[in-house]
Design a protein around this nucleic acid. Sequence first.
DNA 1: TCGCAACATCGTAGATGGTTGGCACGAACA
DNA 2: TGTTCGTGCCAACCATCTACGATGTTGCGA
Lengths: 356, 356
Amino acid sequence: MPTIYDVATKAGVSTATVSRVLNGHPKVDPLMRQRVTEAVEDLRYIPNGTARSLVTKQTRRVALLISDITNSFFAETARGAQDALDERGYQLLLANSDDQSSRELRSLATFAETGVDGVLIEPAMPSNQSDATQRANRNKLSRQLEALGVPVVGFGPDRVTNTADIVTIDEEQAGFKAVDHLLGLGHQRIAMINGPAHSAVGSRRAAGYRQALTRNGVAFDPHLLISTNFRRDAGFEAMRTMLEWTNRPSAVFAGDDLIAIGALQALKNSGLRVPQDIAIVCIGDVARTIETDPALTSVVVPRGYELGRVGSQLLLERIMAGGKEPLSPRQVVLETRLVVRGSTVAGLVSHFDLIR
Amino acid sequence: MPTIYDVATKAGVSTATVSRVLNGHPKVDPLMRQRVTEAVEDLRYIPNGTARSLVTKQTRRVALLISDITNSFFAETARGAQDALDERGYQLLLANSDDQSSRELRSLATFAETGVDGVLIEPAMPSNQSDATQRANRNKLSRQLEALGVPVVGFGPDRVTNTADIVTIDEEQAGFKAVDHLLGLGHQRIAMINGPAHSAVGSRRAAGYRQALTRNGVAFDPHLLISTNFRRDAGFEAMRTMLEWTNRPSAVFAGDDLIAIGALQALKNSGLRVPQDIAIVCIGDVARTIETDPALTSVVVPRGYELGRVGSQLLLERIMAGGKEPLSPRQVVLETRLVVRGSTVAGLVSHFDLIR
DNA sequence: TCGCAACATCGTAGATGGTTGGCACGAACA
DNA sequence: TGTTCGTGCCAACCATCTACGATGTTGCGA
């Protein structure tokens, strides 16, 4: 492996000049630049990033700490981050926390040793712990992040550090928009099939549901809110139990698209018409909500990709600013959007109609 | 940020002793060890990995170069790799190639600068190029990997470097087992609904299909092989066209589980019984193949997770061996396994029966 | 034409934070 | 007292960047 000395010798200049050429320093004679460039190519010289990092204190490396890359949402986040970082020549270091604070801290410790220029983090929120423990964990996390001494961007609603930027999806707003739409159509008795009640997104979507009701003067009835899982079969079962109620809801708000698909199936099985007998609205992804019959009215939330991309951009801005005159913490809230389809308004053309 | 000097001063020893304590060197007085450990904790000293790497020439970092982390198979691969690496304190650097040779080479160039101890790679196989271009790209890739001077493990059937290990799934075998099973049941007219014919896995599975036929003395009929996409709707459509043939197949081999699910739906829609009228076998994942009714007979192929894990283990072995007395290139072929269910043998208990 | 100042560019040397081989030193033992 | 053994220390080294001083060049006035 040739070093900068070899290049210097071959080009007949000092190592300083080689370094200047390599780093695009303006004040260097074109002739020298030429000679150095040739020597570099002849020797197939590749600068040693480790040595460079040692003196510049920059690694051109960013850590992404998420709960699980196997979750497609976070895979997208990783991809979005990667693409944004790649444009500026930064690399991505990946770590999974499995939503465990201990693993999170351990990963951060390794990052501290190995050296990163910034951290993107989706903070672990273990739901099986007391509030006190959670708070304690958050404090530890916060301290350790600050000790790293590099910019941090967090995904999710709450600020992970006093100086960190955050980028988040307005889940309350999504829930609100969905239910507000139903209310606008005249529905009064609106049930919700939610994911886990204590989950980060589930609780926020439910909050939006309540908000929409009370703002429109409809009393919140806890019996109408079923908490299950973000899965198709869970939606199916929940809908079936609802159908056995004496006083059926006229509309259902599904916590996500999988739940909605399951609920729709249950309604079809029992011969009910959507939206005439029961309307369905959900929060979800475009791809999945247009495949059903009727197509699902849904509040489209940004995908993981956008989250990762925007987060990386914020992080890169801070990294390039170089820590001087610290920018005040920023918060980016990605917008959600209601798309009305056949599951709430009869007669709207469905995707199936279009492709047949 | 305290350095090793600060620790040495505080503990009243030399930096060499501190270093020895940090690296678990055996020949050091317990008293000194004690003093050093205390100083480390007092100062919250964190060794500088960059400086260490500069002298040890190890980074404890491994690169994973795949086409797209958004593909759930590769997300699993990443996770498997991560878990295996984590056990030994190694970190994962992630890069996406999008199946483009140029991006692949560019990523490798950055790895060369930044420094990695090993590379896990799923080589790009752009299908829209001539054989000559592909060969040229493979050569370039091979050379650049060798220039890196670190161990390499490739995913897929062919060796990326003269010294690289490879870990792969025996797709031919999977196809063979599936079709062999049908032949064993007495089927003679067996169709195949494949994914893209030119895709890496598609072509190999089709090869297994042909092998099984010819080995059992059944002539291969190209009309019975439909190439589409690894998607549910593709399976649905392909099955519908097959049903319009005058001479229907008695069994269908689906290239993957999504295709099989689509095909099964088409059969149900037209009132045919599975397996009595038409049997179905596929290659796929356990989770998805037991959810249908009847449950799908399938050849279970290892998941991405296992691939990533095994690959990392091979890589780590080489890294720890330290490059001396080079191990001869190894090839790990992960086994596939036929699981017989209701879609080929009537009366086998289905998953649905079990949970109701 | 010569001398000197100003400017552009280059090279020297120190710094970055660790690791490690060889050497010196002290204690234990014969 | 001489030898051996164990252990800590000194100093060299890893590959690069960069502040600062040195060098060469150019322009201008005398």
